[in-house]
Design a protein around this nucleic acid. Structure first.
Lengths: 138, 138
DNA sequence: TCTAACTAGTTGTAGCACGAATCATTCGAA
DNA sequence: TTCGAATGATTCGTGCTACAACTAGTTAGA
């Protein structure tokens, strides 16, 4: 029982520390691009395609009221655009501009590259186990 | 080569998604205690013992100017205290009050419990591999 | 002694995040 | 068909986070 408890604490602790480490990495890779981590996250989510405000707020786990001002700032920089929905005059879709798409790819590649260098020393089998295990957590 | 590249992207992507998921968990467990995730992090770091401002800012990866106002707010709530150093009249040590220590433990336990439920389905061997691999990343 | 390096704090600005309230639109049921 | 409820987005007010540039005090070493 004691060993199990110890292992649990170790794993949870390792996950928390990893989270903080990756937050730092995320911030460090976003900043040189002139983006906050939250802005980079938003842009990367939109790579897959335009989304409505409500859906976007759900994916990002933030309130819609927070999202409004974030989109305002990004729209001011012409990184995204609000496209009115043809079927619902209340709704709008948030879409990346070409400039925003390019920046989103840059941000995505930067963080993936950084993380790959962090995990470069792990053997292939461990990488596989890790990826599968993390997928199941999400 | 293609398979290796695919695996790399998968692992990095899984790590990023895990980070966001854990950020949400961290926020959700801190909030009921009246703490922001950053405040919870600060309190938990101090469980190990008092720290100076510079050391604390290094551990939390934030600027000292950000830390000053954070400590101000926590000190106002009597969760931490600034203890002037006996040997160095410039410096001060940030220490948890009994109330702060209790809250720090609550915050720590809450997040560890939540993460343990998330990882409860993983077999012991995977847990071990995971913990070791993540340790090497940090 | 006196200066260079260090430590802490201050100020100003921008961004993040939430809740409550608001407005327009859409949908559904009487 | 029409009125009330639900939905999508925004606005407002408040508090927290984060940074850069700056001030001021302290210590240690030349």
């Amino acid at each position: 029982m004691e060993t199990t408890t110890a292992r649990d604490t170790d794993l949870a602790s390792a996950l928390v520390q990893t989270m903080h480490r990756l937050q730092d990495v995320h911030a460090e890779t976003s900043r040189p691009l002139g983006l906050t981590p939250q802005q980079a996250h938003l842009l990367c989510v939109l790579i897959a395609g335009p989304l409505g405000m409500t859906e976007l707020s759900r994916i990002l786990s933030i309130e819609r009221s927070s999202l409004t001002s974030m989109v305002d700032r990004l729209e001011r920089r012409t990184l995204v655009t609000r496209i009115p929905s043809p079927t619902d005059r209340r709704a709008c879709q948030i879409e990346l501009t070409p400039e925003g798409l390019s920046l989103a790819h840059d941000a995505h590649n930067a963080v993936v590259d950084r993380i790959n260098t962090l995990t470069a020393n792990l053997p292939a089998s461990t990488r596989q186990t890790l990826a599968t295990a993390l997928q199941s957590i999400i």
